[in-house]
Design a protein around this nucleic acid. Structure first.
Length: 224
DNA sequence: TCATTAAATTGTT
DNA sequence: AACAATTTAATGA
């Protein structure tokens, strides 16, 4: 950890790149630490970096005109966000907030654009990711008003296990109930009750700071 | 290794 | 939001 980690080499898109491209990606890559509650960027900022979560948990959110906080998505370790703003070279349309102490990888816009224009593998990754997120946003629109808290918790959880966004195979994730509440836009109490209900249905098992999922498929379809 | 205490998280109201 | 119960981490005998 004192010597610098190979952020690029360990990134989920590293496998899509040629050795040459990967070497290029390594250049200028920065890693920064953010404390719990810290803003990685605010809406309106012009952040010239593509952002990856090395360790920790981040939420992508904004404050609506009515003053209500709204979370679009969460990003756990291994997730990368913000390519839209980087590609279009425009200000961020949302806040990036660390929900817990996190280590964030930053890829300079110049590097990102080079990969974007030269690496087919990198583009393959981007298309997959954008396509996957599109599906999530559509789901968000339909469920946000309609579905019960239980279903919201279920879907947010399933997203954290999304195999496209987080290729690493795993059956459990380190996340507290308060953190999950921040992601889903629900109070800790509601999350607690919802998790107990989902557990009673045999979809998952909760323990301290940890949730083990038995049926990701079912969670994703929950209530829909 | 075990016991004690402090801190963080979860369960309830 | 407040409070109790539970789990974990840290400390020291």
């Amino acid at each position: 950890m004192t010597g610098r980690t190979d952020i690029a080499g360990n990134a989920i898109w590293a496998g899509e790149l040629t050795p040459d491209e990967l070497e290029r990606a390594r250049r200028g890559m920065i890693e920064r630490a953010f404390a719990k509650g810290g803003y990685i960027c605010h809406r309106g900022d012009k952040l010239d970096y593509w952002t990856g979560v090395v360790e920790g948990l981040v939420k992508i959110s904004t404050i609506s005109h009515s003053g209500k906080a709204m979370t679009f998505a969460g990003a756990a370790a291994g997730g990368w966000v913000g390519e839209g703003s980087v590609i279009k070279d425009e200000a961020r349309k949302y806040d990036l907030v660390a929900i817990r102490d996190s280590r964030i990888a930053l890829m300079p816009r110049a590097t990102f654009m080079w990969l974007f224009e030269n690496s087919t593998g990198f583009n393959r990754f981007l298309v997959r990711q954008l396509n996957e997120r599109m599906g999530q946003f559509i789901a968000t629109i339909e469920y946000d008003r309609i579905l019960a808290p239980r279903a919201r918790v279920a879907r947010h959880l399933s997203w954290l296990f999304n195999s496209v966004l987080y290729p690493a195979e795993r059956s459990e994730i380190e996340i507290g109930q308060e953190e999950l509440g921040l992601l889903a836009g629900l109070s800790r109490q509601i999350v607690n009750r919802s998790l107990q209900e989902l557990e009673a249905e045999g979809l998952l098992a909760v323990s301290r700071d940890r949730i083990r999922v038995f049926d990701v498929e079912k969670l994703g379809r929950y209530g829909g």
